[in-house]
Nucleic acid binder design. Structure first.
Lengths: 245, 245
DNA sequence: CGTTCATTTGAGCCGACTCAAAATGGGTGG
DNA sequence: CCACCCATTTTGAGTCGGCTCAAATGAACG
């Protein structure tokens, strides 16, 4: 297991202050003035770790804390009446989990680890106290929610307008960009999710996802070996998947 | 124009306090304690009116205020690089507009009136001041954003999983339910949007939307006359469109 | 009453799904 | 280290739903 070493986000030491965290430029405190960042930092519970497959939050459960992934990746999904999974998206380091819980104080979807994963926690009690006196944090949390909303809408638009290849291309381009923002390679990465997960996320079947990848491979846009992806022509993917003004 | 009289939400008198507003049980102040509601009310600019087709907010424009529709309905959309509209959804009375603007302080999509429409406005300056001292309002705004996010995700799931008839059924069931919550008839209503708008919202063509409606009519679930809809078997629509736990 | 736009209906085609089988790779135990 | 086993992924053949293009009908407005 230690030889894989390809998991998303470095295997960070368990306890690090935000100041020394590799995610500093991306994570919540990034846009906060110094004192606010310090106040927030004091409320953060760090270094929780879980194994692949473990569920971080469950639908219906009260939202007791704001969770932010530190390393590893996770799958956000909900289960339909018929028992099938709807995959809403994938969570990368520095991203918050379960924001839609603000709606009712309870989570409405499940989030489970795809790899060994570590995360930070801000208990809601403390968060609310902090929101009382930190205007920057207020703005930051609103920004976070607004961003999530914007992203969800953008994604919906993608589903509505693109065909299978377009969706897969967009998925790869988006993932690539998010990895780059975390200082990881945008062209060489290992998918932590299965074809079936990708398919359920994009509203396709796993065969169709596989075929799309094969097409890209044949066209010379990608190298694909199981879950290892090398992007050879990012522009081509972006052109197919892009589409938004 | 006055003889149509079918527009969504009554033609409210221009200036009404929140206390006397027909939307009181749905709108923002509904969940606020008395003093907070009063404080918010003092910041609200009421009774702005626009004609059909007028754009309320434009993509790229700074988010200068929080807008809530009072009467009438609107279309949220964005324009892709190719010049086609992506319809994100439709706004009913009591619903806020442009929440995704919290992401960057600028709107990312356009909202334009589908009927004569009136709305209320809370300037962002004042809103931020209020958020400083009203914990209930803080929670309420977060709830609003969380709800919008949850809804966007649910919709994405619907797109990913349902076929054409399922999407149209879900659209009607959702609209019906939202109208009911506003004290309007859930079974008799007039669509304020075109088939093309519905189609672009659901990721279909207008012909397919029309065919789905015709099918429902043939099965005896609906009566359809142009944009006037009578729902005869709500359960049937809900069964087709539902699907989420 | 005529014009114009929105909606409905029809025919044919293409892409994505379904079902089925082969191949690949990762992990395990000898 | 190698052979085996299992799950995942790839590939193939055939079907069906939704798209495209085109025409007809219906509604709204001057």
């Amino acid at each position: 297991m230690s030889s894989r070493g390809q998991q998303i986000g470095s295997a960070a030491p368990v306890c690090v202050s935000c100041r020394d965290c590799a995610l500093k430029p991306i994570c919540l405190p990034a846009h906060l003035p110094g004192e606010e960042a310090r106040a927030l930092e004091a409320a953060v519970e760090r270094g929780r770790q879980v194994l692949p497959g473990v569920t971080l939050v469950r639908a219906g459960e009260p939202m007791a804390a704001l969770l932010v992934v530190r390393s590893g990746s996770a799958k956000r999904y909900s289960v339909t009446l018929e028992g099938t999974e709807q995959v809403h998206g994938f969570v990368l380091p520095g991203e918050a989990v379960g924001l839609e819980g603000f709606a009712s104080g309870r989570y409405t979807c499940e989030v489970s680890a795809l790899e060994p994963l570590s995360y930070c926690r801000v208990p809601m009690r403390k968060l609310e106290q902090l929101l009382e006196r930190l205007p920057g944090l207020r703005r930051e949390i609103l920004r976070l929610l607004g961003q999530a909303l914007d992203e969800a809408q953008r994604l919906r638009g993608e589903l509505a307008q693109s065909d299978a290849r377009g969706r897969v291309a967009h998925f790869l381009a988006d993932l690539s960009e998010r990895l780059a923002r975390r200082g990881l390679s945008p062209t060489e990465f290992r998918l932590s999710m299965s074809r079936a997960d990708i398919a359920r996320h994009l509203g396709l079947t796993l065969e169709t996802v596989s075929r799309a990848l094969s097409t890209f491979k044949r066209e010379g846009w990608l190298r694909v070996r199981a879950r290892d992806i090398s992007v050879l022509r990012p522009e081509a993917l972006a052109a197919l998947g892009g589409g938004c003004a």
